[in-house]
């Protein structure tokens, strides 16, 4: 075999994971926002943990094809744990508490992953929704621990690493959330460009064939679901730590549903969808709520409908560029020229 070709292919594979120019631009903009928008740090903090939460959903939805309407189960667990660890002084240092909360959410993710292995999208929607409702009701039923419907009051968060005390302007909070987001993004990026990440896309694309080349489909799904639950738990813990509060709405259905909305706005399966979606969603929410506080839901609903209607072409632009869009248009106007031969049916 030609060694030159081997080198070329290896190079090509290596460049799959190379940082694109737009990626540098995105993170530079995020860094710049810290210095240039000091009086917007509170909303930027919210954007940062929402982005991490959406990244978590993208890992299972965009890469493994698992749709969920109950991702708040892991977010909420992480949130309550971080608040409880701080309130009772079990683990005072926020970073350590953050990791612990994420790990506990991962355990819950592992335990419930077996429920999403089988079944259609509809089954998965219902099962995940059910898990989140159960978690919410558990939190509601143990007010001695969680504070019940009043939420968990009196949480005091210690300085990060013993050095940086959270302030009311959100300066430290935003820096903290942004750094955590960036580190976990780097990890997620590594994972999706690994053989494991590639096999997830295979499992999503065609589970029958994936199993037929020796991929243990269930093991891969359990792994990514657990991993994503860890991310969601961290995101929830960030919310609790930056607000020094946890309440039942961390488990709410709206939170899971909004998260799907964030991903639909940003697009799935390229890691930045959740991040961009979070920015647009929060800014839109903030902007519209200032304009017409009572009609916020109306506008977000309208935007959702518009996005879904134009969604197909937007996705085409992203994945295949203009060429794919052009092909689609040509095909629409010349349906007779469909080049695909139809194989005989699976009759024998």
């Amino acid at each position: 075999m030609p060694p030159a070709l081997v080198g070329k292919v290896a190079h090509r594979l290596a460049t799959r994971a190379r940082w694109r120019l737009l990626e540098y631009a995105f993170w530079l903009a995020a860094l710049a926002s810290f210095f240039l928008l000091p009086n917007r740090h509170l909303i930027l903090t919210e954007i940062a943990w929402l982005a991490l939460f959406a990244l978590s959903l993208d890992l299972i939805l965009g890469y493994a094809g698992i749709i969920s309407l109950g991702h708040a189960a892991f977010f909420g667990l992480g949130s309550y744990l971080a608040a409880l660890l701080a309130k009772h002084g079990i683990v005072n240092e926020p970073v350590l508490a953050l990791v612990l909360s994420g790990l506990c959410a991962a355990v819950l993710g592992f335990a419930t992953s077996f429920l999403v292995l089988r079944g259609s999208d509809l089954t998965r929607l219902m099962v995940t929704l059910g898990v989140a409702l159960i978690m919410r009701e558990i939190a509601n039923q143990i007010p001695d621990i969680t504070g019940g419907a009043d939420g968990l009051q009196g949480v005091v968060i210690a300085p990060i690493l013993g050095l940086f005390q959270f302030d009311i302007f959100g300066h430290v909070a935003y820096a903290y959330c942004l750094i955590v987001l960036f580190i976990l993004f780097l990890l997620a990026r590594r994972v999706v460009y690994s053989p494991f990440g590639l096999s997830l896309r295979a499992v999503k694309g065609n589970p029958l064939r994936a199993a037929s080349i020796g991929i243990s489909v269930n093991a891969r799904l359990v792994t990514i679901y657990t991993f994503a639950a860890f991310y969601a738990g961290i995101a929830g813990a960030l919310l609790a730590q930056t607000t020094a509060f946890a309440s039942l709405d961390v488990f709410s259905f709206e939170r899971s549903a909004d998260l799907l909305l964030v991903l639909i706005i940003g697009g799935t399966g390229y890691l930045y969808g959740g991040l961009i979606g979070a920015v647009i969603f929060k800014l839109m929410q903030d902007w519209i709520a200032n304009l017409t506080p009572q009609y916020w839901q109306f506008w977000i609903g309208l935007v959702l409908v518009l996005i879904v209607l134009i969604g197909r072409d937007r996705i085409a632009l992203r994945t295949g560029g203009v060429r794919l869009l052009a092909e689609r248009i040509t095909r629409r106007f010349a349906p007779a020229a469909a080049p695909v031969a139809v194989p005989p049916g699976e009759g024998s």
Partner: peptide, 18 residues
């Protein structure tokens, strides 16, 4: 994908493909 899987490296998440 199929080759990595056969060689037992299909579940590796810390290395890059290729």
């Amino acid at each position: 994908l199929a080759i990595s899987e056969r060689l037992g490296s299909g579940a590796q998440w810390w290395r890059l493909v290729g």
